[in-house]
Design a protein around this nucleic acid. Sequence first.
DNA 1: ATGCCACACGTTATAGCATAACGCAATTGA
DNA 2: TCAATTGCGTTATGCTATAACGTGTGGCAT
Lengths: 133, 133
Amino acid sequence: MEPRKLTRNQALVLETLTHAEAPLSAYTILDKLRDHGFRAPLQVYRALEKLTEFGIVHRLESLNAFVACTHPHDHGPEKGVIAFAICEDCGQVSEISDPEIEDRLAHLALKRHFTTEKTTIEMRGHCGNCTAA
Amino acid sequence: MEPRKLTRNQALVLETLTHAEAPLSAYTILDKLRDHGFRAPLQVYRALEKLTEFGIVHRLESLNAFVACTHPHDHGPEKGVIAFAICEDCGQVSEISDPEIEDRLAHLALKRHFTTEKTTIEMRGHCGNCTAA
DNA sequence: ATGCCACACGTTATAGCATAACGCAATTGA
DNA sequence: TCAATTGCGTTATGCTATAACGTGTGGCAT
């Protein structure tokens, strides 16, 4: 699933997200890439879809926006659940990978005979820096 | 925060959600209420905003849709985190309130000096009934 | 090389979700 | 009664996402 090489569009979208300091919406990405020939939302959405599959971009459901993965290691499609802590002041997003939560959710699901395909955990609030300031 | 009485619009929207067997989008609610005089999305969104504040309706971020709260007790604005298990086959949503997850998330946030305002936990998958069938 | 296949791409159009801004009406409480 | 607050209705608009169509390109087996 992890590709040898990204296509031009995928690379451009990823680069845009990587350089951003906060999550970006698809349309914001589109605007940033107009100079590189992007004209339509689908160009962005298609790239985002692949990058998300590859596990190097995450979608934040509560924002309808996307971030580049900051986990140093292990790309490739989602081995585990990732929780996001999203600062509403500065936009900073930190990724949290926690086996305890994962196990607990798995337990709760099992108890209900629920088969989980995909899990979203997002905390909205204020990071340490912004709280201090 | 919990109101003595709902307005007409709020009551209609809540009733629609209560009778639904799956989460409804705002526009779906609008369509169902045209016969009752609803004409514009804002009528629905305004009601939903209040009902959500009251804690008797929940928004599902990963669906852009809304459900009536099924917790028997304790309405009123969110004392705790609620996790949702959403069946992609039948649309059934079950609400899970689990102190362990809550504590663990609180711990993880604290460790990062992150102040949490609102937490979203949504599991997408298949309920027992649908898996059996 | 030829033909085929899979995949990315570009474009247009459309669908679906959400809110801004205005003014009026009803309710409440001093 | 008056003022303040809240809800309401309407119009307009903006943001988010996908459908459907056709083109181009690169790999690869024949």
